[in-house]
Design a binder for these strands. Structure first.
Lengths: 218, 218
DNA sequence: AATAATTTTTAGATTTGTCTAAATTTATTT
DNA sequence: AAATAAATTTAGACAAATCTAAAAATTATT
């Protein structure tokens, strides 16, 4: 089973959308891929022929078991490369996405085995997202975002949902990164903003919008 | 100036052939690229439009200065990745070519700067070929192959011309690698074979064919 | 339930890199 | 120098991934 980089990108997009939305539609996928719905239809036929998706015209689509497995391989590669770029090459965590988008399509599976070992078989990427192991198994952890965290309990930042450069720039300013230990002092009902306290730094207020994106291990 | 992976492969092929042959022909390039001559003609027109080659129909072609510069960037990326694969991931030197062929097309120049620094700005790849620096400058060294080396002078293996798996398998068997110190005891005029001596190993005979491919620093 | 709006699909075209077969140009040989 | 051979190019076609515009199916609205 060999797939083009474009096919892999569609497979990965379907995988991610399936985790964010109840139903993944042609239009939604076309928005994610920056293509027109007609192009998505074409690709769905191709992926159906390769037994990657269950698809019936006008009736929607989902990944097959094979499709899911394939997506996990791509996700694994992407996140291992991100880890490499940040922890070995010294990139900032908001700079690595586009390069990893390219690297994830390098085909050698031996390369990924060796890269994984070289990196020390990391379980999480620089954004705190879990890295599937060679069997496709994902280690999950219980997480809550800052808008839902219990008050006055120290927690450790484990992942960030919105990974746009803008968001990461903002987090850098607040000195929040993966592993940062903090606690929520107070939540303001008026606008949902929260006051947080990081060890040795003065307490600061972050908006509800940001709080909802920052997840911690409970 | 942005080039597709295919364009880069043609540019690199022309670059290498120009160093091995007086004149590079359409047919020669098509053999190197595993395509038909007609496809080469198509590509030459495209590369001419991008000012990568000087080309007039039926009159042959050569790389422009821009083409040469572009080729050196690709060669630099290829050899840096080969160095990474061997010295960081533990691949054998005969296993890395195909993976490096893919990695060399990753577009980020920031990636290559950082990779270069991470690797310690190496001057030679695992086959002993020079790695162009970020300006495209190649550090050359005076070399002679085992068929031409002065007798009884210890020399250090610096590169291997034919880099096929078969050749590298053979060199592994003789325990010859880049950096191996050896001397030529005797040359047999009958068939051009040479007796070599590597420190602590019994002297052995290698064929003229092999000797011509193994280069040493004088 | 009929109509309107939305979503999805089809049909036909485009670009990139390739092909085959035929035509053209250059090189070689008699 | 003419004929033949070899190399190169053109012409037209194809697969992959995309597009636009139009048609079909589904969903929502009145």
């Amino acid at each position: 089973m060999n797939h083009t980089a474009t096919e892999e990108n569609y497979i990965k997009a379907i995988y991610h959308l399936q985790h964010l939305h109840e139903k993944v539609s042609t239009t939604l996928l076309s928005a994610e891929m920056n293509t027109r719905p007609a192009s998505v239809t074409d690709m769905l036929k191709k992926l159906r022929a390769k037994r990657i998706v269950h698809y019936q015209r006008y009736k929607g689509f989902t990944l097959t078991d094979l499709g899911n497995k394939t997506a996990l391989v791509v996700v694994r590669k992407h996140r291992l490369w991100e880890y490499f770029l940040v922890n070995k090459l010294g990139f900032e965590w908001d700079e690595v996405h586009n390069v990893a988008e390219e690297l994830e399509h390098i085909t050698s599976s031996e390369l990924i085995i060796r890269l994984d070992n070289f990196l020390g078989n990391p379980a999480f990427d620089p954004h705190g997202d879990p890295i599937p192991d060679y069997k496709g198994k994902i280690r999950t952890i219980k997480q809550a975002n800052l808008a839902a965290l219990p008050l006055k309990k120290t927690a450790s930042v484990s992942s960030v949902k919105n990974q746009s450069p803008e968001m990461l720039d903002l987090l850098n300013h607040f000195q929040i990164g993966i592993g940062t230990r903090l606690k929520v002092n107070k939540r303001f009902d008026f606008d949902g903003s929260v006051e947080i306290k990081i060890d040795k730094l003065p307490a600061t207020i972050i908006s509800k919008q940001v709080a909802q994106n920052v997840f911690c291990i409970i």
